[in-house]
Design a protein around this nucleic acid. Structure first.
Lengths: 239, 239
DNA sequence: AGAAATTTTGACCAGTTGGAAAAATGTTAG
DNA sequence: CTAACATTTTTCCAACTGGTCAAAATTTCT
């Protein structure tokens, strides 16, 4: 269970200090590839992990650089050496997150059996809610505020993926393998029901009480959701 | 469509100024009933309405008293005259909100027909997501942060209500009128699927696109959810 | 080792924030 | 009309915020 490790590819070296040596470096950008040291990657990951913790709990505005720095175990100026501004941290975090976040949907295979594909999708999403609740909350936080910093990603990447999968669902419906219904709202309902267990965790625990609010709640949820999405609430034997 | 007007009952007169006349007033608390002027009530409602707007958008920490005051059309010190601290505003807002928020569930009648009761509940919750999205987001914001300011209310009022209604659902299941399943997770799934349309509104609109993201989305959602909760995704005519 | 580059620190700053104090301005009952 | 009270405005402040900067400490490279 990796804590965060979403993906650390193209690390554009946090705006490497450019003071006096500016003249040279800035004028010949392609000349200096700037290798990216081991320390840089490690520290950046450390910061992103800390930022995930803090942002997911307080939202962008509510989180402070000091808090993030403290969680990351470094001083504020030191943190700012790697990410010159707060928004930069958030942007990176969201960008990497979205990829992970959509992976389960991406895996839904149009050549598989409709029901087992949907069931797997629900299960994977539920596992993510269980194992990566901070990521879920970070995402929810951003959405609640109108997604000001990631709206383009939502409108492009996410929309395209959903459009594509909606088509797959429609095909299955055409083949009579699935009740004919709205594929978009179907996807929304899967998102909503699964992410609920991460985003509203406090409420879920409080309502279930100490008895049933333990770790078993995810298995109960999985069982219930499978029932719901397969057959709804209509009993098989009519009363 | 009342903008907010959740409920303005027991208004404990925002800590009426107590400076020099303190001696008298403070020593004989039960002596002076303090009538609560019309202006006080009006201004307090104005502030709460503004606070709802701001808190729901930025969360507790992200919202500033200045912003709230500006939306309410008054100066910050003036606002602080009615609510001596930021947290006070939030507390009042959440307290009144919870009552409205739970009303739909409270209405679920154990003597009614199970399916029409559940259907009505879903419809009412969906209407609330449509007509009171700010309230929904305020609530979601608080939940995301671990409900630090309303955890007791959740653990008592909300839990009791859910326990009560879960019993009703169980009775219905015992009578064979409803598939036997987990009543708590059933309620969670109704909350999640309906509130999603308020809390993740930006995402819903973005994914549906300009064509289907208009006002019709709530009717589409209602239709889909009815289908889902009634029969799930299994087609009637097996392919 | 020693020079060059990278990383870390400490001091600092300007703008914002929640909130206090008191003076100034209504409002109203006698 | 005016004293008593309610409301509003002005001024102010200490703590916090995001961010800068130069110097010091450390690491890396030759």
């Amino acid at each position: 269970m990796p804590p965060t490790k979403v993906k650390s590819a193209e690390v554009p070296i946090a705006a490497t200090r450019q003071h006096k040596a500016d003249a040279k470096a800035a004028v010949h950008p392609p000349a200096k590839p700037r290798p990216i040291t081991r320390i840089q990657r490690e520290k950046q990951d450390l910061i992103l992990e800390a930022a995930l913790e803090v942002f997911s709990l307080h939202g962008f505005r509510g989180a402070t650089i000091d808090q993030i720095a403290e969680v990351a175990g470094m001083s504020k100026p030191n943190l700012l050496y790697y990410f010159p501004r707060k928004e930069e941290i958030h942007r990176r975090l969201m960008g990497e997150l979205l990829v992970t976040w959509l992976a389960p949907l991406r895996e839904m295979d149009e050549n598989g059996d409709p029901f087992s594909e949907i069931r797997s999708y629900i299960r994977r999403k539920l596992e993510m809610a269980r194992d990566f609740p901070r990521e879920s909350r970070l995402f929810a936080n951003e959405m609640l505020q109108g997604a000001p910093r990631i709206i383009e990603m939502i409108e492009v990447d996410l929309k395209n993926l959903v459009d594509e999968k909606a088509k797959v669902l429609l095909t299955w419906m055409d083949q009579g393998k699935l009740t004919r219904t709205d594929p978009y709202h179907l996807i929304f309902s899967i998102w909503a029901t699964t992410q609920h267990y991460a985003d509203f965790d406090v409420q879920v625990r409080a309502v279930l009480g100490p008895g049933r609010g333990g770790e078993g709640r995810f298995e109960d949820a999985a069982r219930y959701l499978e029932q719901l999405f397969m057959f709804g609430l209509t009993p098989k034997t009519r009363a």
